[in-house]
Amino acid sequence: MNEVWTQQPLFGITVTVAFYVAAQRLNQRFRWLNPLLVASGGIIVLLLVFDIPYEDYSAGGDIITFFLGPATVALAVPFYKYASKLKGQLLPIAAGVSAGLVCGMAAVLGISILLGASEQIMLTLLPKSVTTPVAIEIAKSIGGIPELAGVFAVLTGLIGSIIGPSFLKLCRIQSDVAIGAAMGTAAHGIGTARILRDSETKGSISAFAMGLSSMLTPLFCMPFIWWLQ
């Protein structure tokens, strides 16, 4: 493969779009396949097989990453659409999001301590459940590793989008409010995009929960940071 060509931004953009389109088509036939997981895995395999440096791919991949912020903000559209119907549910959603964030942070710190993780890794893991750009900035401000925080956030969203709906169904949770709040809190934008395919109502609640968790996470991180110090 032409090394000079792979260093051009067009390479990263073309590869990303091609793999995602292919993953979407596979998902139409095999609904259990997560498009984002398939596309990400395919790109990783391609880079490894042809020994293409990640820096070459990121020349174009970073351009797509730039649009992550606007795409995340666009998830607020479903919430705006159903805002009038959700006014009476705001307090329960806020309480659920707060409880989910605190439990998630406590769980990740407990597991990290048991596995002997360093303090910096623990700080990096704290914002894992918020959308990637926010997780990166929070990790940077509290002494974590921003790049690794982004990886943890993406993995959290992927895992949540894959097992979240099935797990909630297994638990016999049928409320749109409960499902939306759980997905938005635990799996941020990736989970919201997944649940939006099932229901705009669930997606709108998930979008609100995701935005609220992004605002509350820095606040809830503070007691855990003080405890670590």
Score class of each variant (00 low, 15 high):
W5I: 13
T6V: 12
L10P: 00
I13Q: 07
T14V: 12
T14G: 04
V15E: 00
T16N: 08
T16A: 14
A18M: 14
V21E: 14
A23T: 11
L26N: 00
N27P: 00
Q28H: 10
R31Q: 13
L33P: 00
N34G: 09
V38F: 12
V38A: 15
A39I: 02
S40G: 15
G41S: 09
G42S: 08
I44K: 08
L47H: 06
L48I: 12
L48M: 13
V49E: 08
D51R: 15
P53E: 01
Y54S: 03
E55M: 09
A59R: 15
G60W: 03
G61R: 04
A71V: 07
A71S: 14
T72L: 06
L75T: 03
L75F: 08
V77Y: 14
K81W: 00
Y82F: 12
S84E: 14
L86V: 10
L86Y: 03
L86D: 01
K87E: 10
Q89Y: 09
L91A: 13
P92F: 00
A95N: 01
G96F: 08
V97R: 01
S98P: 13
G100W: 12
M105E: 08
M105G: 09
A106I: 13
V108S: 09
L114G: 08
L114K: 08
Q120W: 01
T124R: 02
L125Q: 05
L126A: 08
V130Q: 04
V130A: 08
T131V: 07
G144I: 04
I145G: 02
L148F: 15
L148K: 01
G150F: 03
V151Y: 03
F152Y: 12
F152C: 10
A153I: 09
L158N: 11
I159N: 02
S161T: 03
F167N: 02
K169D: 06
L170K: 14
L170Y: 15
I173W: 11
I173M: 13
Q174A: 11
D176I: 04
I179F: 01
A181D: 03
G184N: 08
A187K: 03
I190H: 10
T201G: 00
K202Y: 00
S204I: 06
I205Q: 02
F208I: 04
A209Y: 03
M210D: 09
L212W: 05
F220T: 07
C221A: 15
F224L: 10
I225M: 10
